[in-house]
Amino acid sequence: MTRSDTGRITQQRIAQLAGVSQSTVSFVLNGRSDGSVRIPQDTRDRILKVIEETGYVADPSARRLAGADNHILGVFTYEPAFPTESLDFYTPLLAGIEAGAETVGSDLLLFTSAPVSGGRRELFHERNRLRLADGVLLLGVEMDPDELARLVAENFRVVAVGRRDTPGIPYVGIDYASAAGELLRRAGGLGHREVIFLHRSSLGESVLDRRRGVVDGAREAGLALTDRTTDGTDVEADWTAVRESGATLLVVEEPDLAAALLELAVRDGVSVPSDLSVVALGSASRPGADAAELTRLQPPRAELGERAVELLARILADGDAVPAAERRVLLPCPILDGETLGAAAVAR
């Protein structure tokens, strides 16, 4: 008998066709035994034959409730991952997640039904389907700490991609603070004494880590720091602020903004790095063929995604046996030397 002969195939229908109880079908499907149930091999073979002939596919949510793994890893993004302006950030990250899932033999399920409000998705809502997956990777610059705390309280198996302050949330992140601090110390060693820092307004942990690295690095290197918050929409105003600051070093959080400011420097005859050094705290997106190679942080986003999958797989396999110290991991962040950091300009 085939699926077309019976309509929707259920466990109850499988049991009828095989001449057994529905609970027996459930035991065979989930590969479970409580020690008191012994299913003869010929009965198992009969059930499996009916399953094959009907093309039955188990409901993944029912399997999760029964304690069986579906080999499905969920991916939830607080910000949409596929708009053009997000591709450069998310593409290597998603590539790493895909590679990690292939390594552990799991499929990926991208949760996209959550409503978007103010550019961010809500993790818990009436269409929540998180439990379809064995475990979930969380992506986003900013995450709701109340939602993260609820995940911990309700024992969801999750790993955040990026460092999180919420107690109990496992994560794999990037050590932005150390790398940003090292950039500022290098600049101090090249004679820079005045620096202006252009950054976004955000309470995301990765943003705060980069900011902390810049502030601490400037203090350790003896640099006077001018701080400017910007959303990058008025590049001319940002450039005017840079020129008026008298700084010989410009630190820009967003590499796209740094590239735009480099174009204005060329327009105004400001030589980089002879007159002004410029460094960015992230990977450049699509630099032009003639653009200078930015000195910048080069976060290993593909490795970040792959390592997050590995940690989630460990938690799914070993549960509480995974030590607390190994549930929160920071990867070192390389620095690309580039062409835009040089010795401080002589006072003009």
Rank of each mutant, 00 (worst) to 15 (best):
A343Y: 10
A258K: 11
I47G: 10
L261C: 05
T2V: 04
R228T: 05
V152R: 03
E154W: 11
S277P: 00
A260H: 13
D88I: 01
T340I: 03
I9Q: 03
A265S: 07
A224G: 12
V252H: 08
E122L: 07
G96Q: 09
E142W: 08
V161M: 00
D165W: 12
P145F: 01
E310F: 03
V235M: 02
L138M: 04
R243F: 03
P115N: 14
G96E: 10
G105F: 05
A343V: 12
V270R: 09
V329F: 05
P60V: 08
R131W: 09
T91N: 14
S36G: 08
A99G: 03
I51Y: 04
R129L: 11
R131E: 08
D107P: 04
R286K: 15
T43V: 13
R13M: 12
V252F: 07
I47W: 06
K49A: 12
D256G: 07
L281C: 03
C333M: 01
L249A: 03
Y176A: 01
G288H: 11
A218L: 02
F82N: 06
T295A: 09
S106P: 04
T248S: 11
L330Y: 04
G191D: 02
M1D: 13
L29H: 08
L87K: 13
E142L: 07
A265E: 14
D318Q: 15
D146S: 15
A62T: 01
P300G: 01
S201I: 14
S21A: 04
G118F: 12
S202P: 13
D88E: 15
T112M: 13
R64L: 10
A237K: 10
E98A: 12
R314D: 13
L137S: 05
S86F: 14
V50F: 04
T233V: 09
I97W: 06
E293I: 09
L17K: 02
R286S: 15
E98R: 09
S61W: 12
V235Q: 11
R219Y: 05
D42I: 07
